[in-house]
Design a protein around this nucleic acid. Structure first.
Lengths: 264, 264
DNA sequence: ACCAATTTGTACGTATGTATC
DNA sequence: GGATACATACGTACAAATTGG
């Protein structure tokens, strides 16, 4: 049952891909072409070993490659096996984060890029808004307001941040442009991993609470502008809001801090 | 690795990390923290096996993981071994391309996102331009002009496209924003892989040549606007140029074609 | 053309986790 | 709740391919 993989000895110039990569390519091809859909189970290891005519360690190396791309998840146990999964944004965020990290990108640089994308998304969203979009935006803004107003005593800043980011994500999602939504999600995820630390190291609770309340007002105002269909006004308002929020968030050293410590 | 933000509600998120992943995490940590720099050689397999106290198959699985992130390259042979490498944009482009592909993103959608980023980059570049930037832009535009004017007889459209994309990349690179440059490079790479096919399948050579000559004129005009420091004008011109170029490039079915066939 | 160093691939055995009866 | 069957996880040992001197 040889697929003719190991019998090539003539081509020396081209880099011969490792067998595990070839197996991973074949499996990935089945997945992305839709032959295998999300949730489907692949045959067992022994079955695949027979199908591809390779050994088990080689097949397992292929599994690790696809697993690192989050195209599959491997569960052990009686009902275990290999399941097809959907690629998560976290994978792209990780590889992109590595890229940012190795090139010494600062947080201010990263935020500046988001300041370009989000106002554009706001403009698009306003132009194509559906009633459901406005409802959901109000709901997301309301969720943050509930958290901040009710939870003053035992404030969970991580929870507040999560609600804030959810609103930002919603804007990108509903922009109507899938690419912008995905890029925004990736950049936002990289930002989040830094902000989680920044928010906890800050001790001025009153100041933080004040900023979050300003954020809630900004969310409300933006939602109103979107609802009224004022695309230019919404875009301009969001530009100034992100500019102001960025100055408050990226104080001092944090702005010039490079994207690091994401994967240590 | 996995952040556990699964859209999958039912799956157990308590994922026991496999030893290969743990080894990969440790090695990755050494690399990104700068303990191991690009070009450095890791110990041999047998040495690492002794260091980590795992078996060779397990260690090799860790190699495959890091290799898929292009953090290492493994050469075989007498002077072979594991070398530390820098992550390439192609890795991020691949994971991001998978994301686009699985979510059924169209080429028109992808191009629309680039129409947001590039004009913003043009504006930034104009505001912060150094003399060298203008020189290099002129050089890049001139390179395309030479190719198109001299090579009419045996036109190599792939070469022409490469020169065109080089100009686009240069704009993003010199925008002063590293994040935008990297995002632009990733999106551009995904676009390229499709365009390479589209350009070859088209047979109307005269029409293609006409479009490329229009592109050269646009490059020249943009360079002049940047040189004169007219940020708003440059941004507006580039918006209209990309709009027009997009309509010419994404004719008919191609616009609604989804991002596919990248990894089959 | 040989040889040494190194990764690559194979084979089999044991351990461990998970669902089902 | 415990025994059991099934599937992956991991380890040891060995043969083959590749590269550089």
């Amino acid at each position: 049952m040889s697929t003719g993989i190991g019998s090539n000895g003539q081509t020396k110039l081209i880099r011969v891909p490792k067998t595990a990569e070839l197996i991973a390519d074949q499996l990935r091809s089945r997945i992305v072409r839709g032959v295998l859909k999300k949730g489907d189970a692949l045959p067992t290891e022994v079955e695949l070993v027979k199908q591809f005519g390779v050994s088990r360690p080689t097949l397992r190396e292929a599994f690790r490659i696809l697993e690192s791309e989050s195209l599959i998840v491997v569960r052990r146990g009686s009902r275990g096996g290999v399941l097809v999964s959907s690629p998560e944004t976290s994978v792209a965020a990780r590889s992109f984060g590595l890229l940012l990290q190795m090139s010494g990108t600062t947080l201010a640089d990263l935020y500046a890029a988001r300041k370009v994308l989000e106002p554009a998304a706001v403009e698009m969203l306003t132009q194509r808004k559906a009633p459901a979009d406005v409802v959901d935006l109000k709901s997301a803004a309301g969720a943050l307001a509930v958290l901040v107003n009710d939870g003053v005593d035992d404030a969970d800043f991580h929870e507040w941040s999560a609600a804030t980011f959810a609103f930002h994500d919603l804007i990108m999602e509903r922009s109507g442009n899938n690419t912008i939504a995905l890029v925004g999600a990736v950049l936002r995820e990289v930002t989040t991993r830094h902000m989680a630390r920044a928010v906890t190291t800050s001790t001025d609770h009153a100041e933080i609470e004040k900023q979050f309340k300003a954020t809630i007002r900004a969310f409300t105002k933006l939602t109103n502008l979107i609802e009224s269909g004022d695309a230019a006004g919404a875009k301009e308002f969001w530009t100034t809001h992100m500019d102001r929020a960025g100055r408050n968030m990226l104080w001092g050293d944090l702005a010039n801090e490079t994207v690091i410590d994401l994967f240590v």
